[in-house]
Amino acid sequence: MDVFMKGLSKAKEGVVAAAEKTKQGVAEAAGKTKEGVLYVGSKTKEGVVHGVATVAEKTKEQVTNVGGAVVTGVTAVAQKTVEGAGSIAAATGFVKKDQLGKNEEGAPQEGILEDMPVDPDNEAYEMPSEEGYQDYEPEA
Rank of each mutant, 00 (worst) to 15 (best):
M127T: 12
V95N: 12
V55P: 01
V82H: 08
V40A: 06
V49Y: 07
T22Y: 15
Q62N: 04
Y136Q: 13
F4N: 00
D121R: 12
D135N: 13
A19D: 00
E61S: 07
D2I: 10
P108G: 09
A90W: 12
G84R: 06
G51S: 15
A90Y: 08
V77Y: 08
A85L: 15
V55A: 09
A69H: 12
E130P: 11
M1D: 01
T75C: 06
K43Q: 08
K6T: 03
I112W: 15
A107V: 04
P117V: 14
G67A: 08
K34H: 06
E131T: 10
V48Q: 00
G84H: 15
A78C: 07
V71G: 02
V3N: 09
K45H: 08
K34I: 05
I88G: 02
G67Q: 13
G86K: 10
G51E: 01
N103H: 15
E105V: 12
A27T: 09
T59R: 01
E46G: 04
T64W: 11
Q62M: 13
T92P: 03
G106D: 02
P128V: 04
E123H: 03
L113I: 14
T64E: 05
A140C: 12
A90V: 15
E139D: 07
P120Q: 06
M5N: 04
A17Y: 05
G51T: 10
K34Q: 03
G101A: 09
A124V: 13
T64Q: 04
D119E: 11
A85N: 02
D135H: 13
L8N: 00
P138V: 14
A56G: 03
Y125A: 08
E110W: 13
G31T: 09
I112H: 14
V52N: 00
G67N: 01
A85I: 15
E139M: 13
Y125H: 13
S129G: 10
N122K: 05
V82C: 12
G47Q: 00
G73W: 15
D2V: 03
G14E: 04
V49R: 15
E57H: 05
K60I: 10
Y125G: 10
E126P: 10
K6I: 08
L113T: 06
Q99A: 12
A76E: 10
D135R: 05
E104A: 09
L100S: 11
G132R: 06
T81E: 02
G132D: 12
E126K: 14
E126D: 13
V37L: 07
G36L: 02
E139G: 11
V3C: 09
A89D: 04
E123P: 02
S87K: 06
E130R: 01
E57P: 03
V82G: 03
G41V: 05
T75I: 13
E28A: 10
E137L: 08
A27L: 09
A90K: 10
A29M: 04
A11M: 15
G73V: 10
M127C: 02
A17F: 14
G93M: 06
M5L: 03
P128D: 07
N65M: 05
Y125D: 08
N103C: 10
D2W: 04
Q79D: 05
A85M: 12
L100P: 01
V3T: 01
Y39C: 06
M1S: 00
A91H: 10
E20W: 10
K34N: 03
A89S: 08
K80F: 15
P120K: 09
A78E: 02
G84S: 11
E57I: 02
L38E: 03
D98P: 07
V49G: 04
E126C: 14
A11S: 00
K32D: 00
P120N: 05
Y39A: 02
K23D: 00
K97G: 11
V3Q: 05
G47H: 14
T33F: 02
N103Y: 06
K80R: 07
P117F: 08
A29S: 04
V48P: 11
V15E: 00
E105I: 09
P117M: 09
G25F: 14
A78W: 12
L38G: 08
V15R: 00
K80H: 08
A56L: 02
D2C: 10
E123M: 07
T75S: 06
G31F: 12
V48A: 04
K80D: 01
G25V: 01
T92E: 06
E110I: 10
A29K: 06
M5D: 00
D121W: 04
A76M: 01
E46S: 06
D98Q: 09
A76K: 14
T81H: 02
E130C: 07
G31E: 02
V15P: 00
E105N: 13
E139P: 14
N103T: 13
A107H: 09
K12R: 03
K21D: 01
D2G: 01
Q99V: 10
G84E: 07
K45N: 02
V70N: 02
H50C: 11
A17V: 02
G36H: 15
I112Y: 07
V48F: 08
G36N: 15
V15N: 00
V71W: 11
G132H: 09
A89E: 03
D135G: 06
E83I: 07
V82R: 08
V118D: 12
N103R: 11
K43Y: 14
V3W: 04
P108A: 12
D119P: 09
V70L: 14
L8M: 02
K97S: 08
G93C: 07
N65H: 11
S87L: 15
S42V: 06
Y136H: 13
P138G: 12
V48Y: 04
G68N: 15
A89L: 12
V82S: 06
A17L: 07
V40E: 00
N65W: 12
A124D: 04
E110S: 03
A124G: 08
V26G: 00
L38I: 05
E137T: 06
A27Q: 11
E61R: 02
I88R: 02
P117A: 04
